[in-house]
Design a binder for these strands. Structure first.
Length: 322
DNA sequence: CCCACATGCTGAAGTGGGCT
DNA sequence: AGCCCACTTCAGCATGTGGG
């Protein structure tokens, strides 16, 4: 049974989103007063946008995704302008970030905000939707949604000597459904996840856990010390080594952390404070409509590392979502 | 030397609930 | 849907102290 997601224009101009197996019959049902309460008071309605979905689950998921869009984004999608479906970043996205680097000022950004919206933020949100659907099968416990997964463009400049207000990269993350979304030493309850970054000359895909807070770092170290073999097996896996090589050597301690012997079997990894792996991507890769498929393969190679870390700090793998 | 940990600092967009 | 308003959040930074 084929499923569809449709958007209908109500008499008052508002947009109603629903899922159905038969958009035309559904439109007739709405107009006969047998539809949703929302449309009943705004008749007639006219279906203005239809998308095919792989099944009921995928349709409901896509329906929710559309309902999370802003009014403007929905209008753009209906008008066929800015694609709500990911079709690759255009060269203009990287050009915008390059120019932002040279013009990192509020006034400049405000003048060029529409370019940021249509070339960078919009496609990034669409990419998140696409990857979330793929993750539902690949690693169901890892999720992303446009609202929470896309990092803000604004830097946290409160206590920084560098007061330039904007980041010159655009990035998104996928996180464990039971974990917090934060990252870094100040984030408690965070877990391991996946990451994608768009930046001139610095496009990359990454995964793992960046700078875990103290409780999580302690648990990861204990897990490595107690049983180094499973962790080392994850790092030796062919797909991981081919695509990512090794863990990023970021913030590695020069000596052993307190309580661990210098000659421990896993001494090398007990000195790590950050557990991520990164692969730089070419501009050709990020501009390809096939980017979601490329990322899916990278994510698949990262999932064993992500799962090992999440296991170490107490987050379980998930069931297939649909 | 250098790891571990605590503390103080405080801008602005994003978010969600209530209302019309 | 759209508006208003209070609340939350942010891939932080710098510095000092204690201890192995």
């Amino acid at each position: 049974m084929p499923w569809f997601v449709y958007v209908a224009r109500c008499a008052d101009g508002t947009l109603y989103t629903g899922a159905t197996t038969d958009p035309l019959a559904r439109e007739r049902a709405h107009n006969a007063g047998r539809g949703a309460a929302y449309t009943r008071s705004r008749l007639p309605v006219r279906v203005v946008h239809v998308e095919a979905a792989a099944g009921r689950g995928a349709a409901l998921r896509r329906e929710l995704a559309i309902k999370r869009l802003t009014r403007g984004e929905k209008e753009a999608m209906v008008a066929g302008g800015a694609p709500a479906r990911f079709e690759g970043f255009r060269p203009e996205a990287l050009t915008f970030l390059r120019r932002l680097k040279r013009n990192n000022r509020r006034a400049w950004f405000e003048r060029h905000r529409p370019v940021h919206e249509t070339e960078v933020r919009g496609p990034m949100r669409a990419l998140v939707e696409d990857m979330d659907v793929r993750l539902a099968r690949l690693a169901p416990e890892l999720t992303g949604d446009p609202r929470h997964s896309v990092f803000r463009i604004h830097r946290d400049i409160r206590f920084s000597a560098d007061k330039s207000p904007y980041k010159t990269n655009a990035a998104c993350q996928f996180y464990h459904q039971d974990a917090g979304r934060g990252a870094g030493q100040d984030a408690t309850g965070a877990g391991a996840g996946l990451y994608f970054q768009l930046a001139p000359g610095e496009c990359c895909v990454a995964g793992g856990m960046w700078m875990p807070a103290r409780p999580a770092l302690d648990r990861i170290r204990e897990a490595i010390a107690d049983s180094p073999e499973p962790f080392q097996r994850v790092l030796r896996a062919a797909a991981f080594r081919r695509r990512f090589g090794r863990l990023d050597a970021e913030a590695v301690l020069k000596r052993m952390p307190r309580g661990y012997a210098e000659d421990h079997t896993a001494a090398e990894f007990l000195r790590y404070r950050s557990f991520t792996a990164t692969r730089t991507m070419t501009e050709q890769e990020v501009q390809s409509p096939r980017l979601p498929a490329i990322l899916a393969r990278d994510f698949a190679a990262l999932v064993p590392l992500v799962r090992w870390i999440n296991w170490a700090i107490g987050y379980q793998p998930g069931e297939r979502r649909y």
